[in-house]
Computed example of a mutant assay.
Amino acid sequence: MLIDSARELKARLTARLAEGFPPVVASDLGGRVWTRPAIGLAPVSPGRVHLAIRVAARADAEILLTGLDDVVRAEVDVRVTGPILAQASPSAGQLQQRTRPLVPGLSVGHPAVSAGTLGGFVRLGGRLAVLSNSHVLAAAGAGAAGDAVLQPGPADGGTPADRVATLAAAVPFTARANRVDAAVATVDEGVGADPGAVPGGPLGTTVPDGYEVEPDEEVEKLGRTTGHTRGRITAVEVDGVAVQYDDGVHVFDDQIEIEGLSGAFSAGGDSGSVIWRSSDRAPLALLFAGSSEGGSTGAGLTFANPLSTVLEALGVEWVSS
């Protein structure tokens, strides 16, 4: 419908709400309290819009639209949002605490390391597993399948009593150029997990191919040390990234480079964080290394493996929620 017509309809429906319409009692909705819809305009083409109605449950919209003819109802864009909550990102301190159920961003680690970040969740042979770096979950190859994974990691007070997962697989480093620093650990029986508990809601279900990732895209991550940060991709397909580990230097090819929009995008302990694209929340990369200098702000650069490469190397499937 034309914008002016949509605004007129919006005003009419808003007035009905202001007058206390409709007179609803809980029993009419099966014991559920009616929630007032949000009403706006949704562009569909130049000069034309649909009336945007956002509701906690579809029944709420039906109550509001009672009495409107079919022609008008065809111009309405109804979307069910569920309850709308104030969004707050967990602080770094909260992410370093013992937390159940498991969620992305938490402190985790092999008993022989300090601590890194639980990046996200995947399926391995039908079982739910946590995804992070090899140097976080597998002590950069020193660990073995069957080893414990602790939450929080040892640096944050984790002990054998905090075991939450079992190391299942890690991609070994090679003397030649590496592609990923990645490992998975299957979630132990009785340990709950909420893969979609990410600031802003669950990430996308589709992981773009590494070659579909473009420079200048804005991205976000949730990490154990610096929490929820935003940045932008400054380079892709980066070869020859030399990373210092406890056992020496390992070189990585085909990496993604990121810098923070305001200050550092990451710091030590954020390794293992999943990085997602801000525009559509598509999961893009697995953070594994960074510098303290460089970038346009001088706050350092972050390096990450394309997530599609990580999933292929481990033979796992991404789980968003």
Rank of each mutant, 00 (worst) to 15 (best):
L29T: 06
V44A: 02
F21V: 00
E220A: 10
N133Q: 10
A193E: 15
I3A: 00
G315R: 02
D162I: 02
G260R: 10
L102I: 01
G298Y: 01
L286C: 07
S321P: 07
G153I: 10
P172W: 06
S308N: 12
S262N: 14
R224L: 06
V78S: 01
S27V: 11
W276C: 01
E293V: 05
F265W: 09
R176I: 04
L29Q: 09
R36I: 11
V76H: 05
A182P: 10
D188R: 01
V103I: 14
A26K: 14
P101L: 06
D270M: 03
Y211C: 02
L284G: 08
S132Q: 08
S27T: 15
R163K: 15
E8H: 09
G158N: 11
E212G: 03
V274L: 08
G272H: 04
F252S: 11
F252I: 11
L150Y: 13
L9V: 01
A57F: 04
D28C: 01
Y211Q: 13
A148V: 03
G315H: 02
A235S: 14
G120H: 03
A304P: 05
S5K: 05
T166N: 04
S279N: 04
A74H: 11
V136C: 05
V76N: 04
D28E: 15
S291Q: 12
D28W: 01
W318H: 09
A142D: 15
R100S: 15
Q151R: 07
A140K: 12
I275Y: 06
S278V: 12
A38P: 00
I53C: 01
S292N: 11
V24C: 13
V55D: 11
G40L: 04
P154L: 05
A144Y: 02
R123C: 02
A148Y: 04
G272I: 08
S266H: 03
T14Q: 15
F121E: 14
A56S: 12
P43Q: 07
L102R: 12
L9E: 11
I63F: 13
P208R: 09
E189A: 10
V180E: 07
S266K: 08
D60N: 08
G47K: 00
G143L: 05
G240R: 09
T66E: 15
A289K: 09
G295Q: 09
A289T: 09
S107F: 02
V243R: 06
P215Y: 05
I53A: 07
I84W: 09
G125C: 04
T35N: 10
H250F: 05
A168Y: 06
D4N: 13
A267F: 02
G119V: 08
S308E: 13
A264S: 14
T35Y: 01
E217W: 12
G268C: 02
G294L: 02
G126W: 04
A61C: 06
G141E: 15
S45C: 00
H50A: 13
D156Y: 00
S271G: 08
V130S: 09
A56H: 07
S278W: 00
D77S: 08
R12F: 07
A88W: 10
S271H: 07
V164A: 03
G240W: 06
E8R: 13
V78H: 01
L64T: 09
R7D: 13
P160Y: 08
V108N: 12
R127P: 03
V136F: 02
G201Y: 03
A165C: 09
G260Q: 13
A15M: 06
Q97F: 00
V108A: 10
P101S: 11
